[in-house]
Design a protein around this nucleic acid. Structure first.
Length: 507
RNA sequence: GCCCCUGUCGUCUAGCCCGGCCUAGGACAUCGCCCUUUCAAGGCGGCAACACGGGUUCGAAUCCCGUCGGGGGCGCCA
């Protein structure tokens, strides 16, 4: 239809809520192909289901897509050459083309009441037959139908499908696929309420928008023959079809909320990086030719290849997503890490709305250190509690265990004593004092440092002490909503609680 | 029930189209070791798969047939 051989692909979601990872993957694959081939990516909103579509859903959709890093060349928000891009605004087209089919005798009005059709379908199913429309209204003359319409009768419009034959097409990921027309029946193209049926509107839109490659989920594969029939009825050139396998949950059923987070905005809220999510999504059914797995969007654009997309369904693996997220987090510059971390720290009440440059500098350091090994940004406040919370009164079993031995108490008492006169503290002092204790008691390594770790953090594990001590020393001087206790404060509090001073050994 | 798609380690996959290079490769997870002022991270190594049954062939994960399993569809939903 156009003389341009530019690839034109589209993502055509119905705005029925938040965008799901399966759909996001479809969007991504379309976008990757368009960007790689210098083609055009179209966003079209399929909002003909009046009961389910809402305006705010379209905003969510656009927001999610943008967040993922996808952009489009034509769409409801930016317009384009072949608009409008909202199906609810394209009703004129559907009616125009439906009329054309009616006039050509390739479509007809169907007056069958819905209840009756429903009954017939159930009967067919019960008898083990394919539920195919009987064709009862097939031979009602257009003139006669129009007369009935004028008297106020309601009718849907059906496509007249040949009774015999095969529809076959070459699917870019599946190869040759064929369907028997006997099992198809005459599909409704316009509902009696005047709204186009899905199979009709997609074809009209895809054709009018010059879509060259239809890349979508496998759940559309059995719609394809009906759509092909429509292309043929209009004598339009067929697009290339590619059907992507489904995305499943761990129990191998269709991915749903009960499997965990499934909508894009949930991952965003969790603090998963969009580039990590795209990276992961791209691996659902596709793999790069070389082994490298941590890939940026730009790299994905370069490497993506529809012919390397496989056919079997993929199970969504949160572990691998989080692993990829960790890898992408590592790639981030410090400034970006802080910027992304801040909202989570603020929401947790650890950091105020406005921060001074001293605080910013400290936070940047802290984020850099504490982000290590974190799955997603929403886990960060929990990690920060290592610094902000000091609760020696509620040690866990492991920590209690570590300080319970005679050797541990000996180390702790010595440490308390050697720090008792100090007014200032830093890591060098810590190193010097531990060196002395080592010399005096012969206790070293884990036996020496682990009890001290418990004293300083009230936990059995955490950041390396050479990083931890400077962090709380600097942090203690700052005015965070929840104050950070200095090393000496911690030591004294701990000593008091554990009666380390009063137990001083007789000389 | 009928139709369509699909079946390689627990998971994502490479290999399959163009049979031998596959004693089936990589990654996540898992286990072990190393590193270490804890844990983690990181490094190294281990465990682990061609759904099953028939063919074809000197030779099959790769080709053919069947069985079984999984998924999708069969709407005046999209």
């Amino acid at each position: 239809m156009t003389n341009s051989d530019k690839i034109r692909v589209r993502f055509a979601p119905s705005p029925t809520g938040f965008i799901h990872v399966g759909n996001a993957r479809t969007a991504l694959f379309n976008w990757l192909l368009a960007r790689q081939k210098g083609g055009v990516f179209v966003l079209r909103v399929e909002d003909t289901d009046l009961e389910r579509s809402k305006e705010e859903y379209e905003r969510n959709l656009i927001e999610d897509l943008h967040w993922l890093g996808l952009d489009w060349d034509e769409g409801p928000d930016i317009g384009g050459e072949f608009g409008p891009y909202r199906q609810s605004e394209r009703l004129g087209f559907y009616h125009q083309y439906a009329r054309e089919l009616l006039e050509k005798g390739q479509a007809y009005y169907c007056f069958c009441p819905q209840e009756e059709l429903e009954k017939e379908r159930e009967e067919a199913l019960a008898q083990g037959r394919s539920p195919v429309y009987s064709g009862r209204c097939r031979n009602i003359l257009l003139k006669e139908a129009q007369k009935r319409l004028e008297t106020g009768e309601q009718a849907a419009i059906r496509l007249k499908v040949p009774e015999e034959g095969l529809v076959r097409f070459t699917d870019l990921v599946r190869g040759e696929v064929e369907f028997d027309l006997k099992l198809i029946g005459d599909p409704i193209i316009v509902r009696s309420n005047g709204m186009p049926a899905y199979n009709f509107s997609v074809v009209i839109d895809d054709a009018l928008m010059h879509i060259t490659h239809v890349i979508r989920g496998e759940d559309h594969i059995s719609n394809t023959p009906r759509q092909i029939l429509l292309y043929q009825a209009f004598d339009w050139t067929l697009p290339v079809f590619a059907h992507l396998s489904m995305v499943m949950g761990q129990d191998n059923t269709r991915l749903s909320k009960r499997h965990g987070a499934t909508s894009i905005d949930q991952f965003r809220r969790e603090g998963v990086l969009p580039q990590a999510l795209c990276n992961y999504l791209s691996f659902l059914g596709w793999s790069p030719p070389e082994g490298k797995e941590v890939l940026t969007l730009e790299e994905l654009v370069k490497l993506f290849d529809l012919s390397r997309v496989n056919r079997s369904a993929a199970i969504f693996d949160y572990e691998k997503l989080y692993w990829l997220n960790r890898q992408h987090i590592k790639l981030l510059p410090a400034q970006k890490k802080l910027e992304l971390a801040l909202p989570y720290l603020q929401a947790a009440g650890l950091v105020g709305k406005d921060i001074t440059s001293d605080e910013e500098q400290w936070l940047s350091q802290a984020v850099e250190l504490l982000l290590e090994g974190v799955d997603k940004f929403s886990d960060l406040p929990q990690k920060f509690s290592l610094i902000f919370d000091f609760k020696p009164e509620s040690l866990d079993e492991e920590a209690k265990d570590i300080i319970s031995s005679a050797a541990a108490r000996q180390v702790l008492r010595a440490f308390v004593e050697k720090t008792s006169g100090l007014t200032d503290f830093n890591y060098d002092l810590f190193a010097r004092i531990t060196g002395e204790i080592k010399k005096e008691t012969g206790i070293k390594g884990r036996d020496l440092y682990h009890p001290l770790r418990v004293m300083l953090t009230a936990r059995a594990s955490g950041l390396e002490l050479d990083k931890f001590i400077p962090l709380i020393e600097d942090g203690a001087k700052l005015n965070f909503p929840r104050r950070i206790k200095s090393s000496l404060e911690r030591i004294r509090e701990f000593a008091r609680l554990m009666h380390l001073e009063s137990e001083r050994q007789p000389v």
